[in-house]
Every structure is written in C-alpha cells, then in structure tokens.
Design a protein around this nucleic acid. Structure first.
Lengths: 351, 351
DNA sequence: TTGAAAGCGCTAACAG
DNA sequence: CTGTTAGCGCTTTCAA
C-alpha cells in the first residue's frame, strides 16, 4: 500500500541504505547515476517518508515545539502575540524542513518531558514568565524564549528593546509638556518586559525634569475591559494625571474608551500612549499613538537562532587552535529595535 | 539515561507488555496490584513515553494536524480566525491526549502526504476553499473542514450559519429604512461562505421590498485598507447607497474609516454592518454593528467531531439488526447560530 | 561508492 | 491476568 525505502531499493537494485542516503541529501556518498534512478522511482511510486520511523531511528524529529503555558482555564492564551509567533515559526521552519508542534504546558515539568518524548530538535517558549524560565532544567536541546529577560543561560532571549520603548513613551509625553503621568501595566517582578518598560519610562521622565512623585503607576491587567475600568475612574483616582502610558495596545484602547465614557476626551483631557502597534491601533478615534514592536522580525530572529543552534553552520573549520576552549560561548540574547508611531492620542496637557 | 518500558518491566518483574498495557490505561487486562506497582516504579523513574516509537508501532500518532494553505509569499495567514481555531483545537485535544501539528500546505498533494507520513489520526482544514476541498482525495482519516460548504463527503463541514447571518444583516438594514444597499465582500465562486452571506442578504432585502437593482455588490478584499479605499470612493461610485454590509469586520472598519476620511459620517450618511464580531468592533467610534459568529463554539464543535470520528463512542452495541447496512452514514455538516450585535454603526438612511 | 547487520522503543496478535 | 513473538520503517555503524 504505502511505499517504503525497501520498495524503492528493490526496484532500483540497490540497498536500502543507498536509497536512504539519496533521500536525505547525503548525495556525496552516492553516484549521480544511482541518485537519478532512485529519485525517479521514488517519484513514480509516490514515496512519502515515515516521520515517526525516522524520528525513532535517528533520535531526532525535525520538530520544533512552540510551548505556551496554559491559563487557569487550561486553555491556551491566543493573544495576537502568540499568534504571530507560532504562525511565523511555521513559515520559517517549514522552508528548512522542520515542523511545528503547538503545545500547552500545564506544569513546568512538561517542558522537559515533551522534549524527551518527542525527540524534539528545538523549543520556542512563548509567554513564559522569567521566573518559570529560570526554573527550567532542559539540556540537550536549543531553547529560545520570546520576550524573556531570564538569566537562564540555556534559554536564549529574543525580545524587543523594551527599555528603549519605555524611554520613547516617556520622552514623548514629557516633550508634549506633560508633568504628571501614569504608567499602567500588569503586575510584574524583577526586570522582565514590564519592568524594562517601566524603568525606561521613568528614566526618560526624570531626565525631562518630572518630579519623581508625579510619575505614578497602576497595576492592571492588559485587556480592553481592564483599561476601560481604569479610564472610568482615572479622574477620581489620579486627578493630577494628564497622560497615561499603557504597556499594551488593548489596555490603551480600553483606557481611551473609559475616559470618553466618563465624559472626558483624548487627547484633550488626557493623552494616551500604547505599546505594540496592533492593527486596531489605527481604527480608533483618535488613532492610538504607540510604541511599535516588529513582531515579524522577532519571529524571524527566533526561528533563525533555533535553526542555527540545531544545525551549526557547517563552517570549513580550519584547524582550531589546539587547546582552544571548545565549549562554545552561550549565545547572547537579542533585543530588537522599536519605534514610535504617531497617530493622535497624544497632545499637550489640559489647562 | 532515559527510562524505557523495559526498565520498568525489569524492575517490576513483569513483561514489557504488561507495563505497556498499564501505561495505556488498558487496565482491565492487568491486576490492580500490578498496576499499582508498575505505576509507582514508572513515577519514580520518571518515565516519559517515546512518541515516535509509539506512532511507528501502532501506526497511529495521536496527532491531529491543523492544515492551512499558504499564500503567495509562502507564509501562513494568521488571521484572528485561524488563530482561534488552532489555539482552541490544542486545548480541546490536549485534554483528550492528542497533539496538534500546525502545517502550511503549499500544494494540495501535501495533505495526503502529511496524513501518511505522520500517521495522523485526524485533520482539520482551515481556510481551504471549497474547490480545494472538492479535489482532495484523502481516505482513512477523519477530516473536518472549517467554514466549508464543499460537497466532498469525506470532509465534514463546520461553519456558522452564513446564510442566516446574511439575512440578519439585510433585515437589519431594511428595518432601519434603507432602500439602496451595497454588499462588499471578496470574489467568490459557488455557494461558499461568501455566497451564502450574499444570498441570505439579498433574500432578506427582497423580502423587505427592496428593488433588486438597488441591491448592489462590490468585490473587494477584506483588509482594512481595501475597505478604506472603498469608503473613500463610495459616494462617487455608489451615490444612491445608504448602507453597506461588509463580510468581515476588518473590511467594515476600513469602510467606516474611508467614509469619514472622505468627509462623511457613520451612520449619519452611510450605515455600516460587519461580520465576525472581532474584539476591535467595540473599539471604533461608533462601535461596529455586526453579525457575531461564535468562534469558540466552532472550534469546540470541530474538535468534538474529530475526536468522535477517531474514537467512535464505545456504545454497548446491542445486536445490530442483521442485514443492516454497516457503512455508517456520512456525518452531516454543522452550521452554528449567529446573532446580531448592535453597536451604533447602523442608523436610518440620510435625508 | 555501496551494503549488511543491528536496533531505536513500542504495540498487535496471539498463546497460555 | 500475563507473556512471547514479531515486527513498524528508518538510520547508525562498520565492513567491503
């Protein structure tokens, strides 16, 4: 029914190994004539390699898993962010002969278990917290962590330059003349994504001469509704504030909606600046001024790194210095540029 | 290093098969005492099953693939739609012990190849056209096609009731008093998703007494920019039209933006109604009135069907009538309810 | 440049 | 309830 290597081998009058070598592009080991003949027969018979068999024998699967922690309801967060990462990974990896397994992680141990059970060739961690990544103990497989600032040397971080993004936001608001501002973002520990944005924001505000006490912060989740509620109570809880920096566009748009709903106007009464530059940032009125991060570049970079770690460039290694330390230095994390997109939600302070 | 069934078997003093049976929940075949012992040892040794080995031996992988056609640039479309489907599948299937492989399809033959090569247990087709699905020849594995109206009996369609959705939109506009309307959607053939919406829309308009010549249609792609351009030239190209039904929220929001940019107002000059109810539909001003489809329900249904086809309910089959035709009837496609979400982009006609 | 042997870790099918 | 036998289809290793 289904064609195997041995069927091709029989018909070509060669051994299974020769066919295997041809199929895997190890053609240096096979004569051109044989290659041609084998390839012809394979095509005619409609040969499709059996992936599990290959994975079992080779102890390597050509699979890279996209691992995402599951929330309380045990379901994957399908944020626009995750989406872009997983979809982009599939594209990049497919072109190099790799496949993407999408898997929700319920318990941290499942990361290592998945690696072993599937003979994974690589792992990309999406939406893991730095604390979770710190705790991971996974060897023998390249690990890329999106948006991570974890110190775990085994997990290569790929993220936007969140600190610079925070600075951009702070500088923009200060430039516009604001002297009393609010940072709105999710609770965080340490200097992860949110911490980076906060310190960058604060730094830029201080440099612009704002009073430290006039740089407030609110912990809120990053959904539209969370923002809306903050917007509604903004005047009451933060009467002095004339501008808000929200760490996510969803949040920012919610804040704008809440402000308007409460009878205020954006940017007339309060300016709002977001982070991400999601598609809908241009659909609102006014359009959302926001710090844009390049998701496509982030995924491309993550994919590039994973592939490079899996298949280290076959460099013509000229005699390495004898005695050279052969343990390769751990790869540096990558921070991608961000930029400000001006749309209209930031204006001069009221009054 | 890594624990195998035989390690556990050795330590427990039983055969590998017994351990295998325990691990696979076929516990009816094993004594409680043995089960307990085996499970204890497995836990202590940190046993993790080898998925490729299992797939190879059993000729079944516990993998369901989410297959998505790739566009011209060879990259996956990561529409909010695809996202919801793939993320939701992962959640539902994980809870039943299945895994999700995400794969872009460059050529139709790859569908069958992927099924064979991976020993897939099931396939969910996302964003395939009905024509593509018609042509597929894949046996021996359950196939669910999201948003398909294809006649291919092997592909079980799961979609929203697009015809009813079109009717809702048409009736809403007619109710509001509109007598000259425009349908905006992508080019389509036959009675696929867009065709259903169009016929439903037209039907409702006609029933409400609109002149057939006053029900216009425009073929446009469904991105924001496409909509914006249509909005900009709406007054010139369709001077009589007072209301637009767009087959996608992105498109609808773009149309609103274009209208406003051209100096008009929504719904003052032109009413707009969308389809999908994506998150940003509430972020615009005015909010977008739209036909909501329940993506979560769609995915849940698709997952339920796939699982049911893979593991037909172990029904206590009481003696089936002798002579009964044993070929089970092909499963009926599923159409899910839609409803109208009123937000403010539809009002009475101008003048 | 090619091939033979051995086995990856697991399960189906039966026998006891 | 438990064990034995035989592979699944491929690659690794080593020999020719």
């Amino acid at each position: 029914m289904t064609t195997r290597l041995s069927d091709i081998a029989d018909e070509a009058g060669v051994s299974v190994m020769t066919v295997s070598n041809v199929m895997n592009g190890k053609r240096a080991r096979v004569s051109p004539a044989t290659i041609e003949r084998v390839l012809g027969i394979a095509a005619r018979l409609g040969y499709v390699p059996n992936i599990p068999a290959r994975s079992l024998a080779a102890n390597s699967s050509h699979i890279v898993a996209a691992l995402v922690p599951v929330g309380e309801n045990n379901s994957l967060l399908v944020s626009p962010h995750t989406v872009a990462v997983v979809g982009g990974m599939e594209t990049h990896l497919r072109h190099r002969g790799y496949h993407v397994l999408l898997r929700g992680i319920e318990h941290e141990d499942q990361v290592a278990q998945t690696v072993r059970g599937w003979s994974l060739d690589g792992v990309v961690l999406v939406e893991f917290t730095d604390e979770q990544i710190d705790r991971l103990r996974v060897d023998a497989v390249p690990l890329v962590a999106i948006d991570s600032y974890s110190a775990n040397p085994r997990a290569i971080g790929v993220r936007s330059d969140d600190h610079a993004g925070g600075r951009l936001a702070g500088a923009r608001l200060a430039d516009a003349g604001h002297r009393h501002v609010l940072f709105a973002g999710p609770p965080y520990q340490g200097l992860g994504v949110v911490g980076q944005r906060w310190t960058g924001f604060r730094e830029a505000c201080l440099e612009a001469g704002l009073d430290p006490r006039a740089i407030e912060a609110e912990e809120v989740l990053t959904l539209f509704e969370d923002g809306r509620r903050l917007g509604l109570r903004l005047r009451r809880d933060h009467p002095e504030v004339t501008a808000v920096f929200a760490t996510a566009d969803h949040l920012a748009v919610g804040i704008m909606a809440g402000i308007v709903e409460a009878g205020g106007s954006v940017p007339g009464d309060v300016s709002v600046i977001g982070f991400d530059d999601l598609d809908f940032a241009r659909y609102t009125t006014p359009g959302l001024t926001t710090v844009a991060q390049d998701m496509a570049a982030k995924v491309a970079e993550a994919s590039r790194i994973i592939l490079e770690e899996i298949e280290p460039a076959e460099i013509e290694r000229t005699e390495t210095e004898p005695g050279t330390d052969s343990t390769k230095a751990p790869r540096e994390p990558v921070s991608l540029d961000v930029h400000l997109v001006e749309r209209g939600s930031v204006g001069p302070p009221r009054g």
